[in-house]
Design a protein around this nucleic acid. Sequence first.
DNA 1: CGGCTCGTACGATAGGCATCGTAGTACGGT
DNA 2: ACCGTACTACGATGCCTATCGTACGAGCCG
Lengths: 116, 116
Amino acid sequence: MSSPAVSSRDLPHPASGEIRLEDVLHALSDPMRLRIVRELAGAPGELSCSHFDLPVTKSTTTHHFRVLRESGVIRQVYRGTAKMNGLRRDDLDELFPGLLDALLDAAARQAARLGG
Amino acid sequence: MSSPAVSSRDLPHPASGEIRLEDVLHALSDPMRLRIVRELAGAPGELSCSHFDLPVTKSTTTHHFRVLRESGVIRQVYRGTAKMNGLRRDDLDELFPGLLDALLDAAARQAARLGG
DNA sequence: CGGCTCGTACGATAGGCATCGTAGTACGGT
DNA sequence: ACCGTACTACGATGCCTATCGTACGAGCCG
């Protein structure tokens, strides 16, 4: 066998060069997804999908994670039954320097202002 | 009479405190609107709607400008028959410092990368 | 006044999308 | 082998939206 993958199941991610700004912005324009990204940014490592306690069903949660992955905002990988999620900081910072930090800062400011 | 308005027709804008990050991101996630904003950012003053040569009908153009205005990204004011458009740099920079510049830089980088 | 340009309003249409529920697959542990 | 957990797939639904065309209103200029 080739190098043992983290799991037999692999998930399609856009290559770094295929990430489109419009898709990233669209992904982050949903409150639920922005919340996910903020939580991911505040965590040290990766987080499993089940770690999040969102006010929607699991089907919808799956949908949001897929949108984030397909837009290039997060990286997903299976680890056993869990699916681990991490921000694609490296790729995003290289493509759009300062953007992710500005977005996270903007979200934090709005949360503070509106009492989030 | 109160101070003479620029025109008898007035347009509804969100107050600075009512601008929501999600709405701004959603507004900018459309290629046509991102293009408009980039052009506005590169111009010295205000630009009329008719200045833009977009590959859509005038109805659709009106729609996009309204979305930008209602999300708080641009300010619109009538001047005779023309409708002048300007970025709300001041408000955006106060609410989300660095965000607008990061977005414009990101858009410029992508345009350069993809040959826009 | 008459016409011209700029932009709006309204209705229609087609596609996208956030959400749900149910049924199913993959993996790990007992 | 069995069960439970984690996540997915699929279909349905209702809303939002990008687009168009046509008809209209507002202001300028001759």
